[in-house]
Design a binder for these strands. Structure first.
Lengths: 297, 297
DNA sequence: ATAGTGCGCGTACGATGTATGCGCACTACC
DNA sequence: GGTAGTGCGCATACATCGTACGCGCACTAT
């Protein structure tokens, strides 16, 4: 332990034990030099350490005082300098851009220019892009409150799943954004998980949790298919149907070369599958819920 | 239509009608100047247009000849210049990096430096990053061939799902990479889809397709949870369990503030859920398959 | 009046994917 | 055997990204 750490520790002790109370003055630099027999630089460093910990603060003309530095008086801004921006506005713009052009088009510079503001100004409100995305997720989820869930457990968790689906549908980027965000909580998602857990009280506890995660994973999985499709269509201007017909040749040769009997059969007698992800989602959801019912019985 | 376009069109007509056959000489620049009454520059431009279309090529000392330019003889490289790189090597290195550090760490420069090669040299073999990723996906899938599926339809599609799961487990990046790739086919994935379709021959055709997509979406959904967890652990060095305990305070206040009875109840009497994604995957798969069975009956 | 302070944001850095175009080794002709 | 020409392989350079850094200015406190 260096000398300045020793001094800092001693003063820290006096403060935490109450020997020095908030408002009291700690020994001045010069007093420390005298009492501990150290150089000025060392004494200064010790006090700086405590300042960095916000245990003490310098009070001009008085000395170094115990207690955190007083919050600087809120600067009164002249009317023309009132910040016309706030966090919600940034988050809203982020959502608007991601909705219109996908997460890939979302950049700090883009948001800033869209808001008529300098890029770095955003960092006054959102900390960084990752944090912004988490806030976007939270805000997007909040657009779809749950209402009161039905009594029937099956109806209840179906409702939550459908609400999620609606959110993913409205905000196509949501499915990929929500995964990137474990280190951050999404507060307004908690009511959803709570609703599912409540509905599944009849199940064993670990089964209830597994059910919930599986269900959410499924919904997000289908939502990602939807997102990929939308993104590809936007990038290339080609819909899924068109793409299939375009790629028919390549697919044809692959089928011919590989050993894909079921595929060939499927394409043989008129491939007219209606590619409707809403229906697909409901189908898988039904199957899953049927499975759960069987299990509960 | 400009003059040179007129001339080019006329020559093009003579070639496509067979009036001029491959090997024949088209009129020289000077002949065109004489016959069409245009300037040298115009005649030259007309011939250049056709050259760009690879309909004709200049043959030194002969004139401009119908037919595509002869493929340059394959340059015989001296032994010390034999390219020591090939596409598979690039793809393999891409997979190695993504396995070890995630898709985010995958960059063209990184691959190149890891291979001891200049960055742009990679573009001789892989076209671009997107294409590379698709090839990585294909290669990763190919590591898990299907074997012969059981007769029982349920066992058969469970097997395919488990093979997918194994692939996702081995290559954590696979779950996010596989979605980005609609415009490209993943050839060696087709046998998997074919196996599922074959197993579901008993179902109505559209139901079979919906089942397949739902199932794959589910598997990938769970795999993405796994990937996010692994990535977060690598980035922050904090496991999921540790994170939960770390965030307990924040979660606690959220629970206290919000109205989350089931959550509170869950945490109240000892939260000891075993967070095992393999088991979770099997659980959800079972539920889904149970649902399908019920539906088939 | 003047010294000091901290806020807001402009500048700049280190990444990224990849288009562009240059030098050079080689081929094909006189 | 010299030489013109060609195309391959890759170094350089550009546009984009997120954001660290630190400067100037407007304000507060003396």
């Amino acid at each position: 332990m260096t000398q300045y750490e020793t001094i800092a520790a001693e003063l820290r002790r006096r403060i935490t034990t109450g020997e020095l109370k908030p408002g009291d003055r700690v020994p001045s630099t010069r007093a420390l030099v005298r009492d501990f027999g150290v150089a000025m630089a060392t004494a200064t460093k010790a006090l700086q350490t405590l300042q960095a910990e916000r245990l003490v603060h310098p009070s001009p003309g008085v000395g170094t005082v115990v207690g955190p530095p007083p919050r600087a008086a809120r600067r009164t801004l002249r009317p023309d300098q009132q910040p016309e921006l706030n966090r919600d506005e940034v988050v809203r713009m982020g959502i608007a851009i991601a909705d219109a052009e996908g997460l890939a088009a979302l950049s700090m510079r883009r948001i800033a220019s869209e808001l008529g503001v300098s890029t770095m100004a955003l960092y006054r409100y959102v900390g960084g892009k990752d944090v912004l995305v988490v806030r976007m997720v939270d805000a997007a989820i909040a657009e779809f409150p749950l209402g009161t869930p039905p009594d029937d457990w099956r109806e209840a968790i179906a409702m939550v799943a459908r609400v999620h689906w609606a959110a993913y549908r409205r905000h196509l980027w949501l499915a990929s954004a929500i995964s990137l965000s474990r280190p951050q909580l999404v507060p307004r998602l908690l009511p959803h998980t709570d609703a599912v857990l409540r509905a599944l009280r009849g199940f064993e506890k670990s089964a209830a949790l597994s059910t919930m995660i599986s269900l959410f994973a499924y919904v997000r999985g289908v939502a990602l298919v939807m997102e990929a499709e939308a993104q590809a269509e936007q990038d290339t201007g080609v819909t899924a149907d068109e793409w299939v017909t375009e790629q028919a040749d390549k697919l044809g040769t692959m089928i011919a070369m590989g050993d894909l009997p079921a595929f060939r059969e499927l394409l043989a007698d008129g491939f007219d599958y209606e590619y409707d992800l809403d229906k697909l989602f409901e189908f898988g959801l039904d199957v899953f819920l049927d499975g759960l019912s069987a299990r509960l019985r």
